[in-house]
């Protein structure tokens, strides 16, 4: 049985429809992602799943229950990491966990035991008695993740778990999430980073403007919507305005050519061969880079826009 099932799920705020009827199914033990740019409706969807935002229309079932009628039961089995940390600044690091546990009806002794264990897990044991305010962004994020695990949830919802973190902090978070996944916890996360989606997600949907525009595993999506390799060509400043005519000159070299404001992308199975052909046609870019396709390219292909602007 699927843990989360949504059919025609909608969310309206006044005149604005943030989620325009999406179908999603999340299976036990998988890591499922919502990938999309700002305003795609990722957080709105996550809040509906988290039972803190009533749906406007459609069906939604979480752990076999309806959030409209069984919010408390569902929330007892969820862990939630919201987009912005909302830690309790009046409490210490440890108290943030122990006090939170009490909302789940966990006994004081058990709360303390779990809290200490989780601080270990997110590597914050030394900061247990510190205040929350002076923690770094990455530490706060890890504490929020620990807090979401206090009730030993079956599903953990993570809204942009690593946005705003430096690369080192991101990798630490990814590594901890990976461990959770190995323990069999179901992860549902949103992101606008394709590398994050590729790292963590077994399956994902690409959202744009409140709709799902593609669905599959990262591999499948790349195979379906992009080529194996991509060549990025950058030009000197005075050639920037002529990217369109340069693209015309390169016509036929690749399966597809995308013209971005600052560069050209050539989608080709063999990157090196394409580069050789570019030179053969007398085009001299300022820089050339051949790389593997990513979800960014998938998104670009589907929507004609880049994910992160």
């Amino acid at each position: 049985m699927a843990l989360i099932t949504a059919r025609g799920l909608q969310k309206r705020f006044g005149d604005l429809t943030a989620v325009k009827g999406i179908d999603v199914q999340v299976e036990p033990g998988e890591a499922f992602g919502f990938l999309g740019p700002n305003g795609a409706g990722k957080s709105s969807t996550m809040k509906m799943i988290g039972c803190v935002s009533p749906r406007t229309a459609g069906e939604l079932s979480i752990l076999g229950l309806d959030p409209a009628t069984h919010a408390a039961e569902i929330k007892a089995r969820l862990g939630v990491v919201p987009q912005t940390d909302n830690l309790d600044v009046e409490l210490s690091v440890l108290e943030n966990l122990t006090v939170y546990a009490r909302f789940f009806g966990i006994s004081r002794a058990e709360a303390r035991r779990r809290a200490l264990e989780l601080l270990e897990f997110v590597q914050l044991t030394e900061r247990a008695n510190d205040r929350v305010e002076p923690l770094s962004g990455g530490m706060k994020r890890r504490l929020t993740i620990a807090r979401a695990l206090i009730n030993e949830p079956e599903i953990v919802l993570l809204d942009e778990p690593t946005t705003g973190l430096d690369p080192q902090a991101r990798h630490l978070v990814w590594e901890r999430l990976f461990r959770l996944k190995q323990r069999g916890v179901t992860l549902v996360l949103t992101t606008h980073y394709m590398d994050e989606a590729e790292q963590l997600c077994d399956r994902l949907v690409v959202m744009d403007g409140g709709k799902i525009v593609a669905e599959g595993s990262p591999r499948e999506l790349i195979e379906r919507h992009s080529t194996r390799e991509v060549v990025e060509l950058r030009f000197s400043l005075n050639e920037m305005d002529e990217l369109g005519s340069i693209a015309e000159k390169l016509d036929g070299i690749a399966q597809r050519i995308e013209t971005l404001p600052d560069r050209l992308l050539l989608y080709a199975a063999d990157g090196d061969a394409a580069i050789a052909e570019v030179h053969a046609r007398g085009v001299v870019p300022a820089s050339v880079l051949a790389r593997r396709s990513t979800l960014e390219d998938v998104f670009l292909h589907i929507t004609g826009r880049t994910l992160v602007d």
Binding site: A72, N86, R147
Partner: peptide, 14 residues
């Protein structure tokens, strides 16, 4: 300002 209740509402609390 603190958005404190947003955190609590993620638990079974209503």
């Amino acid at each position: 300002y603190q958005k404190l209740y947003d955190a609590f509402l993620a638990t079974p609390v209503g």
